[in-house]
Amino acid sequence: MKRRLHLGVRARLAGVTLLTMLALSACAQHAQSALHPAGPVSQAELGLMGFGFWIMLGVFVVVVAVLGYSLVRFRERRGDQGLPPQVEGNHRLEIAWTLIPIVLLALLIVPTFRATFALAQQQRGPGVVQVTVVGHQWWWEFDYPQLGIVTADEMHIPAGERVQLTLRSADVLHSFWVPALAGKEDTVPGQSNTMYLEAARPGLYPGQCAEFCGVSHSEMRFDVIAQTPSAFAAWVQARQHPDSTPATAQAVQGEKVFAQYGCGSCHTIDGTQFQGKVGPNLSGLGTRLTLAGASLQNTPKDLRLWVSDAHKIMPSTVMPNFSTMSSSDLHALSAYLEGLK
């Protein structure tokens, strides 16, 4: 099966800035790495990881040096006789190696506390973009309550601004993780968690569910697309005024197929009679980069593959296999869905 982030940039993706694409091609390898932070939250976390690491490395070097010296210096040699001095202890030494770790840990714990409280702060208010993230088996729903937008698989945020997240789950535990932007926070059914993140610059930051959530856990991915504030505003504008009218004859046929197969009982398409809530909201599907928990590239071909054989890509997904759908119906359906703007 094809994976996302394939670099075949296509003209359809005009909704995403060219800059994003460039950033993507430049560092796709590190896009999901906690070692290449792209925002203040992940930067702060990396700072603490590093601080802890250097302290630990220091201790490790001491231990290994003492160990190595002992092994070489005090190894048994031919002709050794008698016993070495039977030293049973040394209170001063023992107190020393109790106190020194305490001091080192005290050094570590101060910034730890500070960062723990700082990262737990919340900001509400009209000026802060609020996103409600809902984990589903196996896709992510992103709601923008202030903006009246519901989307899936990709979260658009303005770069350089703090974004406040509320995390929920529709079924089991999931964990929301965009390594380059922020550490993870679990989505717990029956509970709302909060976190915030910020992308310092526009770019595409892949994320993934980090808490085991069932058979296709490994396919539960998503992208965070950070855009310049103006591009973000344009995206919001487009999403608030979705164009759901089929433009071609084939697309008109596709809309009928969509209705005929009952797709609308699970999926919502804004501005139509399709208002199902089980699966992802499909409004503006044509502008998205990926499909199906970001496990597929958004191409008409992959879309048809997904509709006809979803369980091959994502075993046990709620999405049924429409394997009996005729080829022409499939093509019509993909034309309709890819035409949603």
Partner: peptide, 8 residues
């Protein structure tokens, strides 16, 4: 190597 201390 010194001899171990004598103990009873």
């Amino acid at each position: 190597m010194s001899a171990p201390e004598v103990r009873t």
